[in-house]
Design a protein around this nucleic acid. Sequence first.
DNA 1: CGTGTGATTGAAATGCTTCAATTATCGTGG
DNA 2: CCACGATAATTGAAGCATTTCAATCACACG
Lengths: 250, 250
Amino acid sequence: MNDTVRPSTDTTKPRPMVRARPFCAAADGSQAIGNLLTPAEQATLAGIATTLRYPAGDAPIYAEGDEARALFAIDSGLVRIARHGVDGSRHVLGFLRPGDLFGLAEDGRYVNSAETLTPATLLSFPLQRLTQLLVEDARLQLHLLTKAAHDLRTAQRQLVLLGQQDIHHRLASFLIDFCGHPDFYEPAGHMLTLPMTRLDIGDYLGTSAETVARNFGRLEQEGVLTRITPKRIQIRDMAQLMRLASGRAG
Amino acid sequence: MNDTVRPSTDTTKPRPMVRARPFCAAADGSQAIGNLLTPAEQATLAGIATTLRYPAGDAPIYAEGDEARALFAIDSGLVRIARHGVDGSRHVLGFLRPGDLFGLAEDGRYVNSAETLTPATLLSFPLQRLTQLLVEDARLQLHLLTKAAHDLRTAQRQLVLLGQQDIHHRLASFLIDFCGHPDFYEPAGHMLTLPMTRLDIGDYLGTSAETVARNFGRLEQEGVLTRITPKRIQIRDMAQLMRLASGRAG
DNA sequence: CGTGTGATTGAAATGCTTCAATTATCGTGG
DNA sequence: CCACGATAATTGAAGCATTTCAATCACACG
């Protein structure tokens, strides 16, 4: 295991990015890039990438206000994107998976912060060289444009989620998101494994860790799920969970 | 005044798009295009545009699920972008102004609905021809990519806004947004003119029209503002309003 | 096998939602 | 120009969900 927060760096050829969709609302630049770009385009991008390794446990990748020097793609591991209010409050914008892209800047600075949730390997694309590439390759641009449009839709999904009044429905939506991802949901045993804390979920859903815990309890009482451990959840009534997620009373 | 909901169409040369930033969180594709594109690029775009005129009063521009045939830009007037839940609830994603772009599609269909707030003149860009243009012109693409990135940041702002617990702060943020736009805020008399209803604001802030009204009352009691009429608001303590908007206790 | 972090639960206070009634505003036609 | 009617806004009150502070419990890690 890594014993420092500083990432280890190597410039060897990174593995190709081949993973699927992002799983949760990710209001930041985030989407699978593997199935949007051709192998040739991926190779072009990989040519300017540097591989970085980070340990688990909230290792900072960048912070709000930092000078933006690179765009990142996740090769392995999980990353949390958040913004912080002046009062110290935190709002989690998304949980990112392998294949997801993040690090969009504004006026040369990052507008949010990124930390690891688990040990992670990232690909870093220096902005300067990336920009150079973009003006040369229209095809690459069109794909990135498509990606950005998709991210906007994803952000809209979370906006609608936060627009829902009660946490009961928001939590259901959150869980349903995860059930669509093989890395976290095992259909055979109906087992869901959550990689983040209750506080992370609370900050994501716009509520507190306590309310999240209480609503897990409520879903359990209703027979929708069972908490094997806090992070290992067994889904007992997927149909009902989906009803709740889509806003229908339950 | 228009006497039908169908827009009148003409193919004469549309006026150039020259307005400033969008004013409110606009989770949909929306941003001033005038100051991002060169006159030549604007001319290229204008060449494939059709001008549409819509009356006021919630005239539908398109609805969720409609086949997406065009991208829209506002020449004059105001447009509301929203999504609807299966239970009939509505979540307003943004209020758009002249210069704003909207109508991003997913799988050939619109993912939200757009209606007028006031009489509006729109420029319609047929998707087919627009796509053609994009693969030919790398410069245009890079600008649209920048625009998309900006919209993502805007969506993030609204996410943070909705992440705030109480409506008091959310409403303050909402009002501060408007104070930055000359079309709605007159600094001389500290007068703010809101073009939408309390229900629109409620659906935007994730609450009800009643709670919005109550919080206007509360801001008035606190001496922050005065309601001349429901839609004409005089700001009496801008500093305090900004403190509230940034999350600091009031 | 301790120890610290995360999760859960309790209880009081607050804020929000909902239903309902009243009042105000604005566009329209007399 | 004023009156009218429809829509919007405000306010009241009861019920409910969430927040906050606090204490306890469970688990993972060393």
